[in-house]
Write a protein that binds this DNA or RNA. Structure first.
Length: 791
DNA sequence: GTAGGGTTAG
């Protein structure tokens, strides 16, 4: 209270009722302070009901410190006053004070807590990180005879749901002899909070059908998110009909819930109609619409509504922003992302962890991984989701080492990984082919009980196939209690990766028998499997079936697969004809597949046609130019080959350097072409020399020489450099005992010469050599490769 | 009643 307002206030004698009325009508803490002065002047400072009213009002205005001070001045507070302050403290974000007031009440007064006391204190204990307070209160309430009180019961149900103790919540609910709307509503919303969507819907149905209890807008709006989450439009429709019948359908909460439901089911037309039905849409209903447009990829409408919201003078909140942000990355809107980032900084919304996490994701999806990292570093409160967003940002951008090192930082900072974290890390292991790290993660998954999570399981299967252990992957797959379309796709593509085309087709057939609805990726996976195994007829059949039986509009990627299948089989003209039948514009991979086939089957004419298209569509890609240059060299068109390479040089295009990973025990070794940095390089180069002699005797013919005609000296040296896979295999031979399988991982496709070299080395050393290249696995054994020279 | 992080092809 300041002096001016005190001086300005007309202090006059008032009766008690007038004092109470003044308190009731106060609309700010400053008014209350003035009235407080009058209360004192008029001699009511010891009137408990006046003081209680004042404390109650102070709590409503969040002036909890003032309220507490006043409370302490009351010589003999009664139970009602205690209850008011317990509830007030809890509502003002000080749940611990509520509990300590309760303790004080029990230990230092002769008062006995009643059902209100318990209800308010239990509610407060839902806001304390430690669950023990609520559990203790539950026990005391039962002892004091309030165990089946409705008020107390509802707070207890809410408390147990807050701490994810679904069974306990259910138990308390079941034991309540009498159930009212609030109790049912608490149950419905608690189940939703704990992702028990089906149960939530079931409880709602029971409430509506036979409980005899009245449904209110909260009942309906509590259950709607469950239907939305499960995308059960029919259930949602039923709820909508019911709420119309009960006259609840014009309530803004109900309408907002329905908007969200229809949006999540992809029906923005209905959402829009519902939104237009709201007489005075509030921020939350706007948010629901914006997020709906965003998830349905209507960036224009989403942004329009956002601008409208700002224009109406609404103070947008974090939900608005989080619902809007994903609009930016599918369309590459980097500038708009930066704009909204600036807006968040200016308005202070950036401090909300959900906002900074969403922005981190946006930047990493836009390949602005550095910006993502800066934002991550700057964000004050790093939640589990923020760490996960950054880690997955790295794996999605192929920066696996950074992902793994951030994962280590995360553990150092004592943030406990969850299934989401683990899924990203497994994906990183799969990318780099690190079986040792993958197995370590698997160990952690078992310890933490994450194996029941379908994302984790699928990522684990993927990790095993990509790290070369297709059998282990299949075992996990067969033992899986639950599989979705992605799990099946993963296993099918795993077979493809290893060249096991028939197994992939068999699994695909089995999938169809299990009535799993295939996706576009399912067909891509099985078609790639056909291409890696040379199954031409089967591939054509599946493509045909995809279009005619399953009604899929083939994507450019599907065409690329078919071109690959036909091309590898030598049916180059047919592949070209196939491209000409395409209904969509052929993308670079389509022409790339044709170009690759031209390399295998030495067709310079078509190669030139394909590369002309490619150089237009994807001028920065060096791979295609190198491929064309090699094709020309093989055809002895040296001058043309040189001019293709010249372009690469002139434009300063960067070729991805080849590298190979080999793990001995848990230690990873990385080799690059012509690597002389290795401590055991002498032994490696000596053995390389020795092997070279032996395999030449056995009939090996180096394949690089043809490409070396008419090449500048400097360049020749580059080409002559020994490829990293040869160095890695040789090192593996030195480091491991005879008979042990050698596994290596190459980041690019293995070249023709290295492929042939490895075949011979596997024969003379009697070793199984497993090579994972950028495309697939090669299992070399006794002079032959599992790919049947088909890659 | 609205909202952030995860798996599959190439």
């Amino acid at each position: 209270m300041n002096c001016r307002s005190l001086a300005g206030a007309v202090i006059q004698a008032l009766d008690r009722n007038s004092c109470l009325r003044l308190l009731e009508d106060s609309s700010a803490v400053s008014h209350l302070a003035q009235t407080h002065a009058q209360v004192v002047v008029c001699g009511y400072k010891n009137d408990i009901s006046t003081i209680t009213k004042l404390i109650h009002k102070l709590c409503d205005f969040k002036a909890v410190a003032y309220a507490r001070a006043l409370f302490l001045s009351v010589p003999k507070p009664d139970l009602f006053l205690f209850n008011v302050l317990i509830r007030g403290s809890s509502n003002c974000g000080s749940p611990l004070s509520s509990v300590s007031l309760f303790t004080y009440l029990r230990n230092n007064t002769y008062l006995r807590p009643d059902n209100f006391t318990y209800a308010f204190t239990v509610s407060a204990s839902s806001g304390i990180p430690d669950e023990k307070f609520g559990i203790l209160l539950h026990a005391q309430a039962v002892v004091d005879g309030y165990g089946s009180d409705l008020f107390v019961g509802s707070s207890l149900v809410d408390f147990y749901f807050t701490f994810s103790k679904v069974e306990m919540a259910q138990k308390v609910f079941d034991r309540m002899l009498e159930k009212d709307t609030v109790l049912w509503n608490t149950m419905i919303s608690g189940l939703v909070k704990n992702c028990c969507y089906e149960d939530s819907i079931a409880v709602f149905a029971k409430m509506a059908a036979g409980s005899g209890v009245r449904l209110d807008p909260t009942s309906v709006s509590s259950v709607l998110p469950a239907a939305a989450e499960l995308q059960l439009l029919n259930i949602g429709l039923g709820i909508q009909c019911l709420s119309v019948k009960l006259g609840l359908s014009s309530h803004v909460h109900v309408l907002t819930g329905l908007i969200s439901l229809y949006s999540k089911c992809g029906d923005m037309k209905t959402s829009k109609a519902l939104f237009e039905n709201i007489i005075r849409p509030d921020l939350i209903s706007y948010n629901a619409m914006i997020s709906g447009y965003t998830t349905n990829a209507d960036s224009e409408s989403s942004l329009r509504l956002f601008k409208e919201l700002l224009g109406l003078g609404f103070q947008v909140n974090s939900s608005t922003i989080v619902g809007l942000i994903p609009v930016f990355y599918p369309f590459g809107h980097l500038l708009l992302t930066c704009g909204i980032h600036g807006f968040c900084v200016k308005s202070g919304i950036i401090s909300n962890p959900a906002v900074s996490t969403a922005l981190t994701t946006a930047y990493s999806r836009l390949n602005e991984i550095e910006s993502a990292r800066l934002l991550f570093n700057e964000s004050k409160e790093k939640t589990l989701a923020s760490w996960n967003a950054m880690i997955s940002g790295y794996t999605k951008n192929g920066l696996t080492e950074k992902a793994i090192s951030l994962f280590q930082d995360m553990q150092v900072s004592k943030m406990d990984p969850n299934p989401v974290t683990v899924t990203s890390i497994l994906s990183a292991c799969a990318q780099i082919g690190s079986l040792s790290l993958g197995k370590w993660v698997y160990d952690m998954i078992r310890r933490k009980g994450f194996l029941s999570n379908l994302y984790v399981l699928t990522a684990l299967i993927d990790m095993y196939t990509k790290c070369g252990s297709i059998e282990d992957a299949r075992k996990l797959f067969d033992d899986a209690p639950e599989k979705n379309v992605v799990t099946w796709n993963t296993m099918i593509s795993g077979y493809g990766l290893h060249g096991h085309g028939q197994e992939a087709i068999d699994l695909f057939d089995e999938m169809m028998k299990s009535n799993i609805v295939p996706s576009a990726v399912t067909f891509l996976s099985v078609l790639y499997a056909c291409s890696h195994a040379g199954l031409v007829d089967e591939g054509q059949k599946i493509f045909h079936s995809m279009v005619h039986d399953f009604g899929f509009e083939p994507l450019s990627e599907h065409y690329a697969c078919m071109v690959d299948i036909l091309g590898r089989a030598g049916k180059l003209e047919k592949a070209l004809e196939f491209i000409q039948t395409m209904t969509v514009e052929p993308s670079p991979p389509v022409w790339g597949a044709l170009l690759g086939a031209c390399m295998i089957h030495k067709n310079t004419r078509l190669a030139q046609l394909a590369s002309e298209k490619l150089f237009n569509l994807d001028p920065e890609n060096v791979g295609y130019r190198v491929l064309l240059s090699n094709i020309l060299s093989v055809d002895k068109k040296y001058a043309q080959a040189a001019s293709v390479r010249q372009v690469v040089k002139q434009r300063n295009l960067v070729k991805t350097p080849g590298a190979t990973l080999l793990e001995i025990g848990d230690i990873p070794y990385v080799f690059t072409a012509g690597d002389h940095s290795h401590p055991q390089k002498e032994a490696i180069y000596a053995l390389l020399e020795k092997l070279s002699g032996k395999i030449l005797e056995a009939g090996y013919k180096p394949e690089t020489m043809t490409a070396l005609h008419d090449v500048e000296e400097e360049e020749k040296e580059l080409i002559m450099r020994i490829h990293s896979e040869k160095l890695a295999i040789t090192f593996g031979l030195i480091q491991t005992n005879p008979g042990i399988e050698i596994r290596i991982f190459k980041n690019l496709r293995v070249c023709l010469d290295c492929h042939s070299w490895t075949k011979f080395v596997s024969k003379i050393t009697e070793r199984v050599i497993v090579v994972r290249d950028a495309n697939r696995f090669h299992h070399f054994r006794d002079g032959a490769c599992s790919c049947g020279d088909y890659w």
